[in-house]
Amino acid sequence: MSNSRDQILAKVRANQPQDERPLPDLGLFPARTTELLDQFMTILTLIGGKVQRVSNYAAIETHLREHPYPGRMVTSIPALFSIAEPIPAPSDPHALANVELAIISGEFGVAENGAIWVTEANFGQRVAPFICQHLAIVLSVDQLCPNMHQAYQRLQGKDYGFGVFIAGPSKTADIEQSLVLGAHGARTMTAFLMDN
């Protein structure tokens, strides 16, 4: 069979428009608010997430002891190993099938949409934030940016094998547009917003 790659590329090259088509300047999308924390908490709550303000890891531990999850808890954060087992190093991802709560650390949040950026460096096992019944992400309150442009500025030149913006719990509205939280991923998503 002939080489499809070269044929496709030749056809694209022959058919693509030849006029000058410069890329736009993205500098025209500045921050629209300075109240990043308020906006982040409002939007995340609106899209089904939960927000807990905490002053340190000990406060997270206290919170989880007061509101226990009935089952296996895993975390990638050493300061929480007293309450949850470490996420096992890359091995069989199926070993996480029975996890009730996964606690991972987030790199930064986006105020305009309540999303938190995490990469596999933050949680070891790619499936961890999806396969757990409940997900908690710990985020520093000073790690918030206004919008997605600033978010990608932070990611400029960063390397990762897998990274994801997570905005609230898994959800669906496929049945008559009725919103149901907990489709295939985490049923609940809590952001522990930690003071510095």
């Binding site: 305009e112 999806f130 990274g163 994801v164 913006f165 898994s170």
Partner: peptide
């Protein structure tokens, strides 16, 4: 405002 998951596969 955004989908729940925007997954970047590298």
């Amino acid at each position: 405002p955004i989908t729940t998951y925007s997954s970047h596969f590298k």
